[in-house]
């Protein structure tokens, strides 16, 4: 679909004096499931916010040859950068089909807005299959299960034909089976698109990540394959030394399965 890569260089975001992201660089290419991890408040969401124009950042975020920073949100979207939110946000009052139809709309001419919808776009059908929502076509999005809402969000990115998918904690609140299904779907999607996942679930990361960037207090702590990151003493220190208990336990699973059981028993 695209061979352009997302390259973020020296990204900085400040909130009235507080540096939330202080010079972060990473890149993501089509064909890999890229992970961005880090303890709470590390600046992961803020990175995505800056790349998508929601908050102002300095530095550079390029998609291919195009600079993204400084453009308004909807223009960045039209360049092919799509995102989901930490709390699933779909249009509750509209059906799954209507949600997807709106997402597909940016490729349509303005006048088509004034007509009623007839039939289902092939791109929508394809996205429904891809995310397992075919049976929910007429369901109001507000009554979907939590996991289904997150899939609907991903389906919306697919019909939008986003080249870059920035997913903020896509498996939060999902069951183990749903996580596995999501991971496999993301791998399929990533074959043709850039997929960047922000996640807390370390088990999920270990199973599906190709490359990982670890953020800590707005800085890149470590970068590399899952194995490389796990072996990095700095990462071990952050996750085992200072961060909150829940994250510690989760990260421990990645680092050393036996240690995790240990931690859990102690609790």
């Amino acid at each position: 679909m695209t061979d352009a890569s997302l390259v973020v260089t020296d990204l900085q975001v400040e909130f009235s004096g507080f540096v939330a992201v202080g010079g972060v660089s990473f890149d993501a290419h089509p064909g890999e499931v890229r992970f961005l991890i880090g303890p709470n408040g590390a600046g992961k969401t803020t990175c995505i916010d800056a790349v998508t124009g929601l908050t102002r950042g300095t530095g550079s975020a390029r998609l291919g040859d195009t600079e993204l920073l400084g453009r308004p949100v909807h223009k960045i979207v039209r360049l092919g950068v799509g995102r989901t939110f930490q709390t699933a946000s779909v249009f509750d009052e509209l059906t799954v089909l209507q949600n997807l139809d709106i997402a597909a709309g940016r490729h349509r001419p303005w006048v088509s807005l004034l007509r009623a919808r007839r039939g289902v776009d092939p791109s929508i059908e394809h996205a429904l299959e891809e995310t397992g929502l075919t049976g929910e076509l007429a369901t109001p999005a507000g009554i979907l299960s939590h996991g289904q809402k997150q899939w609907l969000e991903i389906a919306m990115l697919l019909v939008q034909d986003a080249k870059v998918l920035l997913l903020d904690e896509p498996v939060a609140g999902m069951s183990q089976d749903e996580r596995t299904a999501t991971g496999e779907r993301l791998q399929r999607i990533a074959a043709k698109r850039i997929v960047l996942v922000v996640e807390h679930d370390m088990d999920f990361m270990r199973r599906f990540a190709t490359r990982v960037t670890v953020l800590h207090q707005g800085q890149v702590l470590s970068q590399g394959t899952v194995a490389e990151v796990q072996a990095d003493p700095k990462v071990q220190e952050v996750y085992l030394g200072t961060a909150g208990a829940a994250t510690t336990a989760a990260m421990a699973v990645v680092l050393e399965p036996s240690a995790a059981t240990q931690t859990l028993k102690e609790q």
Partner: peptide, 22 residues
């Protein structure tokens, strides 16, 4: 029309609509 659906979507989640390219 599709505009009507988009209008309801904008009413309920303006920010989200922005992230769909409108």
């Amino acid at each position: 029309s599709r505009f009507g659906e988009l209008l309801v979507a904008t009413r309920d989640a303006e920010e989200r609509v922005r992230f769909l390219g409108y």
